[in-house]
Computed example of a mutant assay.
Amino acid sequence: MHSRKNPLPPVVLGLEAGCCPDPASGRHLIYGRVFKNASDKDGNHHSAGHLREVPWVAIAPVVTAIRVLERIVPDGGLLFDAAVHAFQNAPAAPAASIRPHSLRGRIEAFAAWASSLARRLGRDHEVVPDDRHGAIGLARFRRTLAWHIARRPGGLVAPAIQYGHMRTAMSAGYAARGRDGIHELLDIETARATADTLTTLHDDLTNGVGISGPAARRAIHAAAQAPTFAGSIRTHRQARDILRNPALTVYNNPRAFLMCVYNRDRALCHRLDVTDAPRLDRCQPSCTNIARTDSHADQLRQHAQALEKQAASEAVPDPLADRLTRRAGHLLALADRHEHDCIHLQEPTS
């Protein structure tokens, strides 16, 4: 049913129409099958696979994509049925999933169609530009996925919503078992994100930006090493060397208005489990791994002002307005604490 060289894993290629029913409430869930190590009651390999015990959480764009595919394929059929998706000059056997060459062809055909539609509607700015690296293949989408997971924890990508910061989770799971798994790309993109964070911090501190928090001095020491590796992360080995260096584990978390200077022994985002990456969706205000810059303090004040404005609206019930006001006060207190405690690069760091 599936080619070993197909860039999409069997669990995706095996998805069927109806795999993502509309929920009565809450998030959409995707129900798929597991094919690896699937066996029947007699221990024989079960080629049809078994239904996953834990479904995936789906965000709106994913649900929309599934609905489009369901309109293309027969009821109960594979979402990526080769008999439906393959071009006419590339016939496929019944009940087979689409092959890599057909996927590439479909991607190129979609880009051409989208560009033609944009020109016809007079929206030339939405034409898909020619790619200097050649045709767009699915393997290149892995880089995009890795970028989002590394740089937008809890952001727009469904796995990020499901697992928070994903580098450790993905590396320990399915992706780590494949020779071309996404875990190496995740390491590279996470290392590059770390390098970019340290480079920006280094430049800010050099220009007199203040930094505060229990991990401020550790952040300063890490930023001092930024010029040695900025722009040089091209291989998995280089990325691994950076990620394994405990002095460089600095993650920017704009959603929490802070930086995490990660130390496993001090982290409050992990209470029982110990991993080599933080859970940026679980930042705790009392954690000793926290540092803030002037930029974070400005963001705290801006968000507090937005909350105060929302609380002052007549459309907001009094209990909610009280909570918003208290939250705004807390954020302003954090910003004031930064102004009082911040240190600068020219001050002694030891």
Rank of each mutant, 00 (worst) to 15 (best):
R279D: 15
G178V: 03
D196G: 00
I136Q: 14
C20I: 01
G231K: 00
Y262F: 15
L145I: 06
Q302C: 05
H85A: 13
S212R: 04
P7H: 04
T200H: 08
D341W: 04
E189Y: 05
R271C: 02
V12C: 03
V128W: 01
R255N: 15
Q299W: 04
S39G: 03
E53A: 12
R33P: 00
F35Y: 15
L15K: 02
V128I: 13
A247K: 15
T325C: 07
G105H: 13
V63G: 00
R167M: 14
D75E: 06
M166S: 15
A304I: 03
G181W: 00
Q162C: 00
P55S: 08
Q88G: 14
D265L: 08
L272E: 11
A48F: 02
T197R: 04
P10K: 15
A315L: 05
V68S: 07
R292Y: 03
P55A: 01
T200A: 07
A135S: 11
G14F: 01
R326N: 11
E347H: 13
D124P: 03
S350A: 14
G213V: 07
A215M: 04
S286I: 10
I220M: 15
N252A: 08
I220Q: 09
D81C: 06
T275M: 10
A333Q: 12
V63D: 01
P159N: 02
A82E: 01
R255Q: 10
A118Y: 03
Y262H: 11
S3R: 11
P91I: 05
R132Q: 13
D204T: 03
K5A: 09
H330R: 14
S47N: 11
P319K: 09
D265K: 08
F110R: 12
H236Q: 11
K309Q: 08
T144H: 07
A38H: 00
R152S: 13
D196L: 11
Y31S: 02
A95K: 15
D273H: 08
V316R: 15
R264V: 07
G208N: 13
S102A: 14
L138T: 12
V127S: 01
A17G: 15
R240M: 06
H340D: 14
Q305I: 09
R167K: 09
G155Y: 13
R292A: 08
L78R: 15
S102F: 01
H133T: 12
H45A: 12
E339R: 07
S350M: 08
L243R: 13
S102D: 11
R326S: 15
G134A: 08
T197F: 05
T200S: 12
G76Q: 02
P246M: 06
V63L: 02
I59D: 09
M1Y: 03
S116M: 08
C287K: 06
A169N: 05
L15G: 00
A193K: 07
R106F: 09
V11W: 12
